[in-house]
Amino acid sequence: MEAIKIHKGTTLPLMNNNIDTDQIIPKQFLKNILKVGYGNHLFHDWRFLDNGSPNPKFILNRPEYKDATILITGDNFGCGSSREHAAWALKDWGFKIIIAGSYSDIFFMNCTKNGILPIVLPQIAREKFAQLASNDEITVSLLHQKVICHDRIYSFDIDPTWKQKFIDGIDDIELTLKQEHKIQSFEKSIPIFE
């Protein structure tokens, strides 16, 4: 997993509430058995017209936003299906950070496994970011838990353990397997009713 400490980048606003993972990556793209290549299908049904050509009105298709790395969005982002393909698609497209009002619990966990930092900030801050020009950069410091936008600084909360995982970019499984003795002794205590 790629580590995140400080990130500077431009934003892309998609301010609807309750954007579900079916919209982020529709089911026809879940058939792949790889983890890469989903970026082309991110927000597919909003991004492409019925004839398959890009919808020029949809923000992801506007050339000035193609280098955005920070997604600004509404409440309950990533609700619905547990498909990690949603996180893979956002990452593959180039997003490194999401700033939302809230997240679904499963999607939040999927972000933490893929080096996408899910930040929660109130609407007033997100509305301000949504007004930024497409080439206006903001800075996210995970180390200091702050988002810096021009002369304003917004603090955000994050669980210390998840924070450390982002900073270190460590493989979870490796970490867990170090606790093998604890797992083994736990397994001996499981009741069996044969």
Binding site: K35, S82, I106, M109, L177, I183
Partner: peptide, 20 residues
């Protein structure tokens, strides 16, 4: 509860999962 694919891999390998 439902989990993502990274968590599926974690459970397959360790029979455990990290949760708050």
């Amino acid at each position: 509860f439902g989990i993502g694919t990274s968590e599926v891999e974690h459970v397959l390998a360790t029979q455990t999962i990290w949760q708050l």
